[in-house]
Design a protein around this nucleic acid. Structure first.
Lengths: 366, 366
DNA sequence: TGTAGGGACCGTAACGTTTCAGAACCAGTT
DNA sequence: AACTGGTTCTGAAACGTTACGGTCCCTACA
């Protein structure tokens, strides 16, 4: 008797059942399987619930019992703001969120801060699976995810043995771009790339660092560029490659400046993202360089801003990438373990690429 | 004996303890309170865990016991894509995500699809609190959130009795904008606003619909505009107000066209968001209207694109709004129930507002 | 009148963890 | 020899739910 009145503790399924004089199962059924009990009793259960302030079955307890969390975890790159500032990342997020919504699943952004090596957040995440987007391959959070016994899809990541993967063919995509520039006659080039590891190196990149880059996408693109230009006789070791930790247009500006200071004779500046390329365009303008007459600038991603600027770039279907990742994860099909989805890319020859200026072309002489 | 070998069931804290011949508590402590057991035993526990493939304490079971989910739920407007296409919404999201990350909390996007009246998703969300961003005040999802016994913060929402609120002073913000236009001499105006309810009405808006709009922000802004212009003798009933369900620049274009078709004599077009205003600028250009000589166009939000376009608008600190919402929710302070945070806004007088063309000004004649 | 069938409800056993109050032990102090 | 204080570990009780395999009773049909 002290029980019912004294009950300042929040109502529970059991207390409701006790109050009603029915079993817990019946109360549970009132919420989850209305067809399992008479409408009249159900009405009484729901009404009593309202009266006692019972808010319905506890989601966590339900998850424990059913072994379903109803959510997908998203682990993304170290800097959270990056993800929301880069239109390509936002597009990915949108696609993933749409796929989750279609499946009625939540999307949990896992707080994987870079400073705090807080792998615990990965352990704490109550999710049925993970999507890992563009993290360095030596990230401890990634390792923690792989230890969790849930399905995982990685994006823009090297192939892992145990998990599904979605991405593009970075090598062929950027090779197409390189070929475009080579056909235009460029052979003296510079490169601006995103960060290659978890350490900050806002400077030139050694060949060794290029080779051992921990961001798969950047590593692949640089290697493919090196191969492509080596194929036409360019000594890659002489090509200035500059790295930027922060992924902003300001970084693109300063990186372009650094490359142009090192070698003012370059005729083309290849950037591994549109954001960086847009910054490079600004820097070119600041120096009075006409694009593309004096300098060709290219990007990568195909974000709307790039389109508006007429940037020569490689378009990748970012939204589709997110959606594919979500679908892959949520597809209950008995999948023959590691599935791969590779999406198509498209070379966009914009207004920022053209033949190199005459002086440089002479090199190829008559 | 059949037990240990036959155990194809995944390892659990209990099975680990049994294997080691220690209590569950000790295994638990090995993970959560390393100081509570000898280093040697801890090492043995962890090693055995690895050997048995025990992935560490189950997050859901832990949540059930500790009554902490370690995540915040975000309920946002009906169309998910909207949230990722509108820079203002993305900014909010970024701020919120940052606040969550600071607190080591996850951020769960609740799949509240508009079609499916799937309130169940709200019930299923294992979170310690909710942030509700810009949903109509009659949204069933909002009602479901309010029934959950967890703290909640609403954004851009009318004040609710039981929950915290963060937002701006929409009335005074847009009144400042109206005053700016009035001072310039505008009295014949048109308005383009975002959707006012859950139903689609891509058309003119009756006074009644304006009054009963379910989106608090839009309702407030329209009412404030009406008051401001009524104050200088404008009969608000004659002011064309056009609504658009989709929040895109294309909507802005067509809405502007609709207003200008109805009344080509207007000298100013007030849009309740920058996205709509940017579309309106496009439409104005298409009609050969010079801005601001022939037509003044204003927006709201202060997104980067608006800045680039020199749009006259009201800047609101979207990132701060998200961050404030997160902080409010995660602040464990014993808060005297409903707390309010109202952020400052700033009128940005850009290049898209100016004095009305001569013909219209005559109305004020000497 | 016996019985098959089905609707309505129930009891018990998990689900895997953390928490709390102690027990056991050991070394050092009085 | 009794006490103190600390470290290390334990046992049992939650946390709130759903799954499983029933039981019971009522109706309809042969």
């Amino acid at each position: 008797m002290a029980r019912s009145t004294n009950a300042r503790r929040p109502a529970t399924l059991a207390s409701l059942a006790a109050e009603l004089g029915v079993s817990r199962t019946t109360v549970s059924n009132a919420y989850n399987r209305p067809d399992q009990l008479s409408p009249e009793l159900r009405r009484r259960v729901l009404e009593t619930a309202r009266r006692l302030g019972y808010p319905g079955p506890d989601p966590v307890a339900r998850s424990l019992r059913t072994r379903k969390a109803g959510a997908v975890g998203l682990l993304l790159t170290e800097n959270l703001s990056y993800a929301f500032r880069d239109p390509a990342a936002v597009g990915f997020l949108e696609g993933l969120a749409l796929a989750c919504e279609d499946a009625g699943q939540g999307l949990l952004l896992v707080p994987a801060s870079p400073e705090r090596e807080d792998v615990a957040a990965v352990h704490r995440a109550g999710v049925d699976g993970f999507v890992v987007y563009s993290v360095p391959d030596d990230d401890p959070h990634l390792a923690a995810v792989l230890e969790r016994p849930v399905p995982t899809v990685v994006c823009d990541q090297p192939e892992l043995e145990t998990v599904d993967r979605v991405g593009i063919d970075d090598r062929s995509a950027i090779t197409g771009l390189a070929r475009h520039l080579i056909e235009l006659g460029h052979h003296r080039i510079g490169v601006v790339c995103m960060r290659l590891g978890r350490d900050r190196n806002d400077d030139f990149v050694t060949l060794e660092r290029q080779r051992s880059a921990h961001f798969h996408v950047q590593r692949t693109r640089l290697a493919a560029l090196a191969d492509a230009f080596a194929g036409v006789g360019v000594d890659w070791a002489t090509v200035p490659v500059v790295e930027r930790f922060d992924h902003t247009t300001a970084s693109g500006e300063s990186a372009a400046a650094q490359v142009l200071d090192r070698d003012p004779e370059i005729t083309a500046l290849i950037c591994t993202s549109d954001i960086l390329a847009l910054g490079a365009l600004t820097e070119a303008g600041r120096r009075g360089l006409r694009v593309p007459q004096d300098l060709t600038v290219t990007g990568f991603d195909g974000i709307p801003e790039a389109d508006r600027a007429g940037l020569t770039t490689v378009r990748q279907p970012v939204l589709e990438k997110g959606r594919a990742a979500g679908r892959l994860l949520l597809d209950n099909a008995e999948h023959g373990r590691p599935r791969k989805v590779t999406l198509d890319t498209e070379l966009i020859a914009g207004r920022t690429s053209g033949a190199p200026r005459a002086a440089a072309q002479i090199w190829y002489g008559p």
